[in-house]
Simulated assay, not measured.
Amino acid sequence: MKQIEVQILQQSYLLTCPEGHESRLLDAVERVDTAMTRIRDGGKVRARERIAVLAALNLAFEIADREAADLAAGAAASRATPAVGAKTHEQESLLPDGDNQRLQTLVERLDQALGDDGRLL
């Protein structure tokens, strides 16, 4: 594990991340800092805790929108492709770590709800 000191909303944090994932962590820090700065500079909210909660909600909403768009695009692609083959490494890398399992669980739940006549895949 590696420790990296970062600045978020002009406050220092010492964060730990696995070796080789430093750039992903720094990208995440930049996103959080940008989201929090935008809220603070909007002038309506000054409390750091409230800014953090609003930024987290905004980022979660963006992720949910992206996931919904990815699911819709995946469903459209599977309808256009007659046979479903194994996923390529390139396709899997479009989703963040852990999301492939969540997506698979969601598809299985949808398949159960739709029954044999309406299987997604």
Rank of each mutant, 00 (worst) to 15 (best):
A56W: 06
A52I: 05
A83G: 07
L95I: 03
D99L: 10
A72C: 09
E30C: 13
R66N: 14
A64E: 09
D70A: 08
P18F: 00
T34R: 10
A80Q: 07
D99Y: 09
A77T: 06
P96V: 02
F61H: 15
A86M: 09
A60D: 11
P18V: 02
N58L: 05
E49N: 14
A76P: 09
D70M: 10
A86G: 13
V45G: 00
A80N: 04
R46T: 03
P96E: 02
A77F: 08
L15S: 08
V29Q: 03
K44M: 00
F61L: 13
V29R: 04
D70P: 13
T34I: 15
G42R: 04
T16N: 06
E92R: 15
A55D: 01
E19V: 13
V32M: 06
G43Y: 03
I8R: 00
T16H: 04
G85K: 07
L71F: 05
E92N: 15
A83M: 15
L54E: 01
Q91V: 04
S23E: 03
H89R: 15
A55M: 05
I8G: 01
A52Q: 06
A86P: 09
S23C: 05
T34H: 08
R79Y: 08
E90I: 07
A83Y: 12
G20L: 02
I63M: 11
A68D: 06
K87N: 10
E92C: 13
I8K: 00
R79I: 10
A80S: 06
I39F: 03
G74P: 01
A68T: 14
G42V: 08
C17Y: 02
L94G: 05
E67G: 07
